[in-house]
Design a protein around this nucleic acid. Structure first.
Length: 326
DNA sequence: AACTAGGACAACCGCATGGGC
DNA sequence: GGCCCATGCGGTTGTCCTAGT
């Protein structure tokens, strides 16, 4: 025996809801509660199936729904969560009070996804699409100054950085040869696509003081998509130049080894995934104190696109259990 | 002014899941 | 354990609106 349809197809109305229907549904639920969705339409005097009523209520009429444009913080949260959870819209929505899974899904498909594609980032894998990246134009137009790579030390794929530095060390005067070798590296793209989403836990918490929680520089804990957004923008802006490459590389590495990357943080509690998300531990703050934080309500698509590529900082308590987190 | 293309979002469809019997 | 049902979920479609021609 086949499964019965969720509602009687005959006589049920489909399509956009009218204000009168909305009013009936709201009034009924305010008095009786949703109860059984299947029987609700009959008692509420609606020519709709229960499923349609439930969707209308949960996605549109519910009083706690937050309508209007997504804030920058919400958008950042969506991107971060999507990099971890994928298309688990309900799970993502659970971390965004007042937003529905349907709304988030629509926003992702119509705004975020397209923007990522424009920036050369695969919205599914959150990895850069090197097939769309014109490396030759970047290298030929840019001057390569490796000191500018310093902030990218852990921000880009380590394999990429290793490859570039190795090639530059052997060919510092000949970017064209570098380009050629880059293009000949058949494994590079595959390695990048296989990039894991978080650094190895052992590397995450190698701090000078294991008794403290820490504010980490963003490159350590940016999600891949943020790393790659930043990298792609740097590349597209010709940010990397090629002068005194070896000296700058040497001094950069010296700087790197001598710098403490951590600052103490005040609170020191146990965290779960939920608590981290619900307390906005992942919400971005500008790395540079002189940075201008974009107003959540007034920023434009362009500003968002630009800001998504800027430095971000995440406060990660060392007590966060990344095994459970994942 | 009329038409068209594309964007944005609401709504639908079908499958999955979990609980009760 | 199997069936039925209600609900949840994610992908897809439909509709409306607006900008461009």
């Amino acid at each position: 025996m086949g499964r019965s349809p969720c509602c009687d197809k005959n006589g049920t109305k489909k399509g956009p809801w009218t204000p009168e229907e909305d009013h009936k549904l709201i009034q009924y639920i305010q008095i009786h509660g949703p109860g059984n969705w299947r029987t609700l339409p009959k008692y509420a005097g609606l020519q709709r199936c229960g499923k349609s009523c439930r969707l209308r209520w949960t996605n549109y009429l519910r009083p706690d729904i937050r309508r209007g444009r997504f804030s920058f913080e919400e958008e950042e949260t969506i991107i971060q969560l999507h990099s971890v959870l994928g298309n688990k819209w309900s799970a993502i929505a659970a971390q965004l009070p007042g937003r529905t899974d349907n709304e988030i899904k629509n926003y992702w498909n119509t705004h975020i996804r397209k923007r990522l594609l424009r920036m050369g980032i695969d919205p599914v894998t959150h990895s850069p699409r090197l097939d769309l990246l014109d490396i030759s134009s970047i290298l030929s137009s840019a001057q390569l100054n490796l000191s500018n790579f310093l902030p990218l030390q852990t921000l880009v794929n380590p394999e990429l950085l290793r490859l570039v530095t190795t090639l530059l060390a052997s060919n510092p005067e000949n970017p064209e040869l570098l380009l050629q070798e880059l293009q000949e590296n058949q494994n590079f793209n595959t390695q990048l696509q296989n990039q894991t989403h978080l650094p190895e836990p052992n590397n995450l918490f190698q701090t000078p003081d294991q008794n403290q929680t820490h504010v980490l520089e963003p490159n350590l804990f940016q999600t891949p998509i943020q790393n790659q957004m930043q990298f792609m923008q740097g590349m597209s802006m010709g940010q990397f130049s090629c002068q005194n490459s070896q000296e700058n590389l040497t001094s950069s590495l010296n700087d790197l080894s001598g710098n403490s990357r951590f600052q103490p943080m005040k609170n020191n509690q146990n965290f779960t995934f939920d608590s981290v998300m619900s307390t906005s531990m992942w919400s971005p703050t500008p790395l540079n104190s002189s940075s201008t934080f974009i107003n959540s309500n007034t920023n434009t698509e362009g500003e968002r696109e630009s800001y998504c590529s800027s430095m971000l900082k995440f406060e990660i308590p060392e007590s966060l259990d990344f095994v459970n987190f994942m």
